[in-house]
């Protein structure tokens, strides 16, 4: 049954794309939950994570990556990008948001847009570095090829029309444990408790002896690190990176966060999976040019009937 194969295929693609969006969306929703800031720089932070991963890979040399060495490279990139993005996000908060903690929310938003511009241009500069991985840096703005470290072989056999590849496995094998781990941190640890307290009422949290600045810093660190993981997964899945990729990825993730109920982590994941699936079903059964219309149409409808998003009202404790 060919149409069944086709449908299953779209399901796989849609869920894989959705999971990548989910990792980025969590970064948005965590920061929003705790300081009510839509961190526009998050998508561009994610982009820089991908550039770092490619640079790390380039430092090892662009050879034939296969088997164990490829998987080792993947692990090294994941750690490097997560660390880099976590630290960078923490730094952005210190420099661009912390001084404005008591200012109006609008100033904070403008500061975030400014940070986003700086990061985009940093990415443009980075792509112009004279490295082999950037094709010598001749065309800084051109999209960069990201080597296919993860094979594209079909795990269901070459005869199967449905393609399920190690790339899809990688996406799930990395994102699901990360989400479980994050849920554990937020619900079971002291830090998680402090985060929830700060999210609910920062003043009361401070009165209870919680160092809210440290907690906010930790939130940025964790959200950024997830963005770093997402950037490596994205790069290995799509095999192209560009200094502009943060805009769309961030837009999708932000939409997912709003769709699920901004501030709610399970909401962000649900929203991201919905967007991933809707995108791929619309691309497959309708026409690609309608896809954005449909995604945002669904967003508008849901916000009309459930203004706090899919899971927004149920999750009373934000973050």
């Amino acid at each position: 049954m060919e149409w069944v194969d086709f449908f299953l295929q779209q399901l796989i693609t849609g869920l894989s794309n959705g999971m990548i969006i989910a990792l980025i969306a969590i970064g948005y929703t965590m920061v929003y939950g705790i300081i009510e800031l839509i961190n526009f720089a998050h998508g561009d932070l994610f982009m820089l994570g991908a550039f770092l991963a490619l640079t790390v890979l380039g430092a090892f040399g662009l050879g034939d990556w296969s088997g164990a060495s490829a998987w080792a490279a993947v692990v090294i990139m994941l750690i490097a990008s997560a660390g880099f993005c976590g630290a960078l996000n923490w730094g952005v908060d210190r420099l661009a948001y912390k001084p404005l903690r008591n200012a109006s929310k609008l100033s904070l938003l403008v500061s975030a847009i400014g940070a986003s511009f700086i990061l985009v241009n940093l990415g443009l500069f980075w792509g112009g570095l004279p490295m082999d991985v950037f094709a010598g840096g001749v065309a800084a703005a051109a999209p960069k090829d990201f080597p296919a470290l993860v094979p594209n072989t079909n795990l269901l056999g070459d005869d199967s029309l449905v393609q399920f590849t190690p790339k899809d496995v990688l996406v799930w094998a990395v994102t699901v444990p990360l989400m479980i781990g994050l849920t554990w941190i937020v619900t079971r640890t002291r830090l998680g408790k402090a985060m929830r307290a700060t999210a609910q009422n920062p003043v009361a949290a401070r009165l209870m002896g919680i160092d809210t600045d440290r907690v906010i810093g930790a939130t940025f660190l964790i959200g950024g690190a997830l963005g770093g993981f997402a950037s490596v997964i994205y790069s290995l899945y799509n095999n192209t990176i560009s200094f502009q990729m943060g805009y769309r990825a961030g837009m999708d993730a932000f939409t997912a966060a709003v769709l699920g109920g901004i501030g709610s982590m399970p909401g962000a994941v649900t929203g991201a999976l919905v967007i991933g699936l809707v995108r791929s079903m619309s691309d497959a059964y309708l026409e690609t040019r309608w896809t954005n219309t449909i995604v945002f149409g669904i967003l508008v409808l849901i916000l009309i009937f459930r203004p706090s998003g899919l899971l927004g009202s149920r999750a009373k404790e934000k973050v």
Binding site: F6, Q9, Q10, T13, G14, N17, I20, Q163, Y234, Y237, N238, Q244, M245, Y247, R248, A249, D252, R279, S280, M281, D283, A284, T288
Partner: peptide
């Protein structure tokens, strides 16, 4: 501006 065209290409 899409991140990939896998669904379209499968079509």
């Amino acid at each position: 501006k899409a991140s990939n065209y896998k669904s379209l290409c499968q079509k």
